[in-house]
Design a binder for these strands. Sequence first.
DNA 1: TTTAAATGTTACAATTTTGTTACAAATTAA
DNA 2: TTAATTTGTAACAAAATTGTAACATTTAAA
Lengths: 226, 226
Amino acid sequence: MNGKIFIIEDEPSIIQLVQHNLEKNGFLVSSSLNGNDGLKELKKFQPDLLLLDWMLPDLSGIEICKNIRKDKSFKNLPVIMLTAKGEEEDKIKGLDSGVDDYLTKPFSFNELMARIKAVLRRSNPNTVSDNLKFDDLMLDRIEKRVFRDGQEIKLGPTEFRLLEFFLTNPKRVYSRDQILESVWPNNVNVESRTIDVHIRRLRQSVNLKNKKELIRTVRSSGYSLI
Amino acid sequence: MNGKIFIIEDEPSIIQLVQHNLEKNGFLVSSSLNGNDGLKELKKFQPDLLLLDWMLPDLSGIEICKNIRKDKSFKNLPVIMLTAKGEEEDKIKGLDSGVDDYLTKPFSFNELMARIKAVLRRSNPNTVSDNLKFDDLMLDRIEKRVFRDGQEIKLGPTEFRLLEFFLTNPKRVYSRDQILESVWPNNVNVESRTIDVHIRRLRQSVNLKNKKELIRTVRSSGYSLI
DNA sequence: TTTAAATGTTACAATTTTGTTACAAATTAA
DNA sequence: TTAATTTGTAACAAAATTGTAACATTTAAA
């Protein structure tokens, strides 16, 4: 994942959180705490995407957005608006002024990440790569393919989701309940032992001959990658 | 509400006030009156959050913060900075050094409480490292792994829970009854002598050759780390 | 020193947990 | 439709963990 993201937001704690997490995901991030500074910095930074707060001490997010759209060099800059307001009419106003997407505070980082990816994919397909990697394993979420050491591995749907889930937090141990909640569709009741069987199937597929075990069993706790 | 909070602040009256109120709210609180002491104490106390004064007699809050971020074990320790200065440029400086949130003196306790909750809520789900440390021992609750002096130690489930329990209050002596209540599932009846056997097993695993004893027997009282 | 209490150590059977396989039902593709 | 794939569960095997008894050793007090 790569790309440059600029944030205009007057709440330091939100900047802190978002910036840190975006950087962890491989983005280059810069920010301003108010609109006027933001507009200036924006030109220097030349981001691929702008996160814009609705309410700012000086200019409103809407005004900034209109300003940006006037500038030819930012004509296609994708903008995601952050707002505490949840009113429908406000949303429409925002969209009219050229906002690409919306996010209502408080939001989870996962939510934000999903929007960012979606918007970037639309505007600049190359900046987003939806690959999860761990050790010599690579999972391509877009093409739904998995490779180990360059060699493709064929997985069934459940095995794929299972591996995808583990890869979002490799090394972390998940209980069978957690796995069930995250990997199986909601309100589906399956025995927790079922997971063991799927783990076994995943292992069989992933542990190509002469490759070391990738899935760790943690007795009385669950499983993790290792 | 629970969690450990450390305060570095040179004004005794503020410590007094904040500490008292935080404890009333169920936090475990410790504090230092200057930066150098604070940095030392911090390692022992292993807090979930740090309240940090901007102006200190020796080090500045910023310097402390930078110091903390260098230390891997504190990489994700949330920091709330207390400051009398309200200038915007100072705030930005603070954010660069990795502060999570700000509070300008004078502040109400409710305000502080709100910020603490917000920061903890944000940091706890993922970012806060759930590692327990004591001496050269490290227990990773997320990955369910234990290391001594960098070398991994394999523990059975009960041994793991036992060590985890001791690590939440190392040095403190626990009676066999207390250990039973906290480490064994509820309504399970086991002989108190059983603990001796598990202690023995834990000792065997933890005391790698040429390493000093970590578990102390306190005759007629119980056990503790040491 | 002797004695009694507390703790350390060991071995082992019972229990719990996980691995593995097979198979029928359900789903999807051809 | 048929054929192929995928899925959940039961049944059994294998492995790890657990609690306790029995005996050894240490400690503290008399």
